[in-house]
């Protein structure tokens, strides 16, 4: 594995702006104004950030709003 292509999206209907994804991977996510919801900066995250993105999606995002393909 490791070299798989990962695609990340955030479901804005679910996102509550807790900012966990930004804590996990600030290179991949940011919180937007004015509602604090997360937007994806790197829809295909660099390999070095993939583990953090997976942790954010699996264990950290309290609204379970992060979707990962691949």
């Amino acid at each position: 594995m490791g070299e798989t292509t990962m695609r990340v999206t955030v479901d804005h209907d679910l996102c509550v702006g807790a900012g966990q994804c930004v804590r996990a991977a600030p290179e991949v996510f940011e919180q937007r104004d004015p509602d604090g919801k997360s937007t994806v900066l790197q829809p295909v995250p660099d390999a070095q950030y993939q583990a953090a993105v997976r942790e954010a999606a699996a264990r950290m995002c309290p609204a379970r709003a992060i979707n990962i393909e691949g």
């Binding site: 702006g17 804590r23 600030p26 919180q31 004015p34 509602d35 604090g36």
Partner: peptide, 9 residues
């Protein structure tokens, strides 16, 4: 959502 934007990192 009114508040969340005021408390981002």
């Amino acid at each position: 959502h009114m508040l969340a934007g005021e408390f981002t990192m």
